[in-house]
Amino acid sequence: MTPESSPEPVDSAQETEVCQLRLYVAGQSPKSLKALVNLKRLCDEHLHTGYEIEVVDLVENPQRAADDEIIALPTLVRRLPAPLRKVIGDLSDTERVLCGLQLSPMENGALVDG
């Protein structure tokens, strides 16, 4: 077990950091397109402190799958703040995404740990 994966609550200093996300997809597959749409909506609604999304198309760059040990698609990876978190699926269940990223929605859009 890596020490990063311990369920240490993310402290408030980190919450204000820009959230760095990476979405792995497989070309223009329906699940990929759906995941991208869902992710954008989710970020707009819940990540007011700022976010970056990198989309990696494994059909174009299959060798990048090894970067984050990707086997399931689509996979969303939270690169920052640490620790690394992964959510698989088309991201249609917003709550599960936020839970997976250890982010909880607040009314004012601020983030607390889940």
């Binding site: 698609l73 689509p74 996979t75 978190r85 959510v87 698989i88 991201l91 917003t94 599960r96 995404v97």
Partner: peptide, 13 residues
């Protein structure tokens, strides 16, 4: 432990 699931996925990766 790292993997959360939200919606449909496959092993395309």
């Amino acid at each position: 432990t790292e993997i959360e699931q939200s919606g449909e996925w496959d092993l395309e990766g």
